[in-house]
Design a protein around this nucleic acid. Structure first.
Lengths: 248, 248
DNA sequence: CGCTACGTTGAGAACAATCAACCCCGGTGG
DNA sequence: CCACCGGGGTTGATTGTTCTCAACGTAGCG
């Protein structure tokens, strides 16, 4: 009755068709679920989607809001975050293409979501998505796999927040972006950050100053190269791995 | 093919039969999944289980170990934790009766699990559990629900670790235990802690000293009463809620 | 060309960690 | 019976990593 109960989940490790990186994905593809159900079913799922444009900084979801629709991101990037009543904010994750925004078993979202860059999402009406899931057992399994991956990532993040020093957190963050990108485009040498230092700080529980100092430190040590503030070239990944420390 | 891919998940919100609190649960019950499948199926699931005793402090799972079996806790309590290579430890959760230990989609556990008190677990062989899940769609849905709840809790924990002061963390922790207990036994006035101050500290990312100071502070303020170190009586839940701040 | 947002760098403050006693209680053995 | 012992818990003083506050740089844009 309530299959669509995931919070933010990424389709990590979804085998990606070769043309996925270059082909325009808005509209008729549902890459996040490819492989989970027959192609014909996927086409039917695609018919349920309604595309939606978001400008950088625009809010898609407000915490506590009625959680009727579900979303996947077809291009761009978003942050999801939670608030305390006095306004303290914790970014709990960044989402990119093919990531999936859903809800956590209650009727309202437990987090807010905002576009970092201009972003396109596809909206699924919940009832219809649920019906689709109910008639495709492969979907439930896929969603479970996504949730399990997300859960493991969340525990990893607890270790980061709880036990890692500032530079270790920043190194872990860079590496997680790199790994994510490698799955999508097989480029592990450079990343263009779509988030500001303030976003990174809010995610890693540091300040912009501390994040900046970590970047500067890595640059001075020759581990990375900065081209502007957004483009990061990895020079010594071994060392970054070392700093990020195990697991990561 | 891989339905049993959850990390630690609790059966939160499982409707509990009235006799569940008092009846001995070892052996023939699978409360965590009651309601998800027909009673007859539950009986068959119970046949797969093998009970196992753990003394306090005994390790059930070592991080990285082959993740063949799955477990539910039938009595007692456990901690699950992750390690960094230099030995830093982060407790990522406490598990109690009916909680479910599983694995996160890869072949090895991503965390360790150790008994806090004398504990009984039931072991499921993975192949057979998977087969059971595959033949009972209700199970997949239940597992998904459990995972979603756990994911929401993990995000809550990120906010706690990232944005809450020491007393707020301790208040949040006490309240989460209380809420959990209310679901099981409808007693929201007192809890007997099965973990030491050191465990609590490792979970909340504080030191035993800081945890102790928070307890002392709450006692002095009249919010709680301590009977020994383990028995906590709640005197002013409103105020604790206030301190734990929103969401929680 | 100045505005504004973002980023970097530097000096002092703060919260919790660390280090160090001391207390309390249950168990053990003389 | 009681002294000893040890783990866990509490309390106090000092240290440290990051935050805070503040200033300066830099880049994009009207």
């Amino acid at each position: 009755m309530l299959p669509s109960i995931l919070a933010n989940v990424r389709p990590a490790f979804v085998p990606m068709p070769a043309d996925a990186q270059t082909a325009p994905t808005h509209g008729l593809r549902v890459l996040a679920f490819s492989g989970a159900v027959p192609k014909a079913s996927l086409e039917r799922l695609a018919l349920l989607m309604a595309p939606q444009q978001l400008a950088a900084g625009e809010t898609l979801i407000d915490e506590g809001e009625d959680a009727t629709p579900l979303f996947t991101i077809t291009s761009g990037s978003m942050k999801i975050y939670k608030l305390l009543s006095d306004g303290r904010r914790q970014i709990t994750g960044f989402l990119f293409r093919d990531d999936f925004l859903s809800l956590a078993f209650c009727d309202h979202y437990t987090y807010s979501a905002e576009a970092l860059t201009d972003t396109t999402v596809c909206r699924f009406p919940r009832h219809q998505f649920d019906r689709f899931v109910n008639t495709h057992p492969g979907m439930e399994r896929r969603l479970l796999r996504m949730a399990a991956n997300e859960l493991a990532a969340a525990q990893e993040q607890m270790v980061l927040l709880g036990r890692k020093m500032a530079p270790e957190r920043v190194a872990s963050f860079l590496l997680s972006l790199i790994r994510r990108q490698e799955h999508l485009s097989h480029d592990g040498t450079a990343i263009r950050l779509t988030m500001t230092r303030a976003h990174i700080a809010d995610y890693l529980v540091l300040t912009t100053e501390t994040v900046s100092r970590a970047f500067t430190g890595f640059r001075s040590a020759g581990y990375i190269e900065l081209d502007g503030a957004a483009l990061v070239r990895i020079r010594d990944r071994e060392e970054l791995d070392e700093i990020a420390e195990a697991a990561g």
